[in-house]
Amino acid sequence: MLRVFLWSGGMEYFIELFFSGLTRGSIYALIALGYTMVYGIIGLINFAHGEIYMIGAFTSYIIATVLSIYGFPVLAIVVLAGFAAAIWSSAYGFTIEKLAYRPLRHAPRLSPLISAIGMSIFLQNYVLLAQTSDFLAFPELIPDFDFMEPVAHIVGTTDLVIILTTAAAMFGLTLLIKFTRIGKAMRATSQDRTMAMLVGINVDRVISMTFIIGSALAAIGGILIASHIGQINFYIGFIAGIKAFTAAVLGGIGSIPGAVLGGFVLGLTESFATGYVSSDYEDVFAFGLLVLILLFKPSGLLGRADIQKV
């Protein structure tokens, strides 16, 4: 049956859909990395993560607008806006953890979860009131490269940049966690927080670092995705957040490669469902797959079954 579908469109159509799915999957994965990191360390689903991504997009919008008034070159705008957004979003991530999660660290697991949902709603409404409820036109920060023109009908420049950034972020994070001191401390905290404290790891600092790294990634995602779809408003974090969270669960929440794999699986499923069946059923296929995978592998594709919180 699948073969009939595949042949029905020809190879080129298949490749086009594949790249659509890859772009979409990379977008989900970039945001999913933040969910999975925080869960891996403190076992909390940080529902406000989607809002951090949205704040990153707003910050880069403001910085990019100001810089383009002063006539900065495009590359400088991208880099500076990206840096500013990463720093600003990290500050938010750090503060949210301090205000809303740290006081509840020893409370029942449900309490920080509710606090996270509250934070998410608060941040949405804060941006709504402090900024605007309108859709804003996000500038096209990534110019079309000339060498991409022959394949522009399959994969655009922004698509390529998003895919490469996601890949780089995944490898960078994996290296960080495997080979650096802070990475070792993160692994230790994740395995046994009390024990980590006993051997002299500053657990609070490790958790703060996790939020800072995750938020910076979300901000980078914000600038890339916003310049891909060309518009932002206060609500974009919610929908993107739900999909990214689904990707993280699909791949095995707590696992870095799992978040990326989950993002790709989700993005590709949606893309092929749209291409070969109908976009009306895009979400049906995506969430059907989620249920199916969780039935057979409750901890997700790359998740460890032995996660047990004490």
Binding site: Y13, E16, L17, F19, S20, G21, T23, R24, I27, Y28, D159, I225, H228, I229, Y235, I236, I239, A240, K243, E270, S271, F272, T274, G275, S279, E282, D283
Partner: peptide, 13 residues
Amino acid sequence: TPGAVDYSAVVQK
């Protein structure tokens, strides 16, 4: 689906 992050699949279709 309204609010999706990318519509390239439907555009290819």
